[in-house]
Amino acid sequence: MIERTILVIDDDIDLVEIIRVTLEGEGFKVIDAQNGARGLRLASDEVPDLIILDVMMGEIDEGFQVAYELRNREETREIPILMLTAVVDQTGFDFDPEKDAEFLPVNEFIQKPVAPRELVDLVRKHLPTSV
């Protein structure tokens, strides 16, 4: 089986580490970036199999900007994106994943905190051609 690479873009290094331990335990390779710009560069260079993106980094909507940019670039367009959000009514701006998902270029919204099992299941579900 080929090793699948997951890119985690999140400015919380502890959370990145937790996700890394979770996913590496399941045999995935995890690379990470602490901000949007570095995340975009890494996504273009490494072309990971899936990207986990935090909705709120330095700027309130940095995650959204990164997601749009990923969808704009030829080489990253097809990569599935899981977007991590804080509890919805706490994001500080009004958006509703259920209603707004179709306007946002991500495959799934994951509400933090997410149980390790659940995260692994979601990653497997969205990996292309995974069984």
Binding site: D14, L15, I18, A86, T91, P113, V114
Partner: peptide, 18 residues
């Protein structure tokens, strides 16, 4: 404030759950 407080709690919770 709620966002700033919530983030570390969520991270801690994720670590504990893991």
């Amino acid at each position: 404030v709620t966002h700033e407080v919530k983030s570390p709690i969520i991270t801690a919770l994720s670590a504990v759950d893991l």
